[in-house]
Nucleic acid binder design. Structure first.
Lengths: 158, 158
DNA sequence: CAAATACCTTACAAAAATGTAAAGTATTAT
DNA sequence: ATAATACTTTACATTTTTGTAAGGTATTTG
């Protein structure tokens, strides 16, 4: 019950673009550097998000990626599910059957039921948080450090 | 962002024992059959839960497993984390660093922050649901089918 | 005490997720 | 046009997770 690597790094790369706004643009190389991951890996994650319609790619010499919609219009549920698939595997019963042909609990199963409730809660939380919320939060976390204005340094020195 | 196979099957096996109560007992073979998984696999999952203190094992010819505490006293957070580890990987920053020595966001990172909030929400939900809740829910799902009491059949027949 | 039963442990095989590499295609600048 | 840049795609190596196999240990029954 954790966030996968694809989901987390994908989200991080998308946040880099989100900080540039819909008009901004960045190359994969720069995005990769910003997040400390390899260029091919960032490239792969961005390709997924491009196919999912989250980002746009511009090819050629002055190419790069940009975010497709306003960061305030993109919630985490969309990002996470597009990167890692649905929270609740749709053909769960077909896969996790042990040695049987089909899940023995298909119709009457409290675990499926509770899994559904849990997925709903998680989805609700993720849907209620946008990329912009993350960026805002980020700003609030950095600001306290640059509280004293540099121009005032001479006054407060003594 | 899904429940792992270990978590789900482990939970299912534990539920089988929970239905027997703290006095009941079942062999791995019977548990495995009840959930439609292989005996060695069920054995492995039960071993994890034994070491985690969720179940007790009785060895020897009349051996088997039993649940260690009342199902109403065991919540899903405990089960899930003991089977699959913490919701938020503790040395996350040490692992997911891309090519760097350490995560570049260690101190200032809105993603970590939001991940923490999410993990908290999930934990809250899981902590609020016990094994007994699942069993109760299960009963309510089956009951409607046996609504008419068999002993009343002669009275309502005409 | 010996045989049968059932848990225990370690090692290993298979599958899925993660991350890397390389060759290809499109665009820009010279 | 040609070279340089940057996205695109496919294939592959690595790691982790999942599931199986086998031999060992403990307890009961005759």
């Amino acid at each position: 019950m954790r966030m996968s690597a694809t989901e987390e790094y994908g989200l991080r790369c998308l946040l880099v673009l989100a900080r540039q706004g819909t008009e901004g643009q960045m190359s994969v190389a720069d995005i990769a550097e910003a997040e400390g991951i390899s260029v091919p890996y960032a490239s792969k994650l961005l390709a997924i998000m491009r196919q999912a319609g989250l980002v746009t790619a511009v090819r050629g010499r002055k190419g790069g990626f940009r975010i497709r919609r306003e960061p305030s219009e993109i919630d985490l549920l969309e990002v996470i599910t597009k990167l890692g698939g649905p929270l609740l595997d749709p053909d769960h019963c077909a896969k996790r059957t042990g040695q049987l042909e089909q899940c023995i609990h298909t119709d009457n199963c409290s675990v499926h039921d509770i899994l559904g409730s849990l997925a709903g809660k998680i989805a609700g939380f993720l849907a209620g948080t946008t990329l912009n919320d993350l960026i805002e939060k980020e700003r609030l976390m950095v600001l306290p450090r640059i509280d004293r204005r540099p121009s005032d340094a001479s006054q407060t020195q003594g």
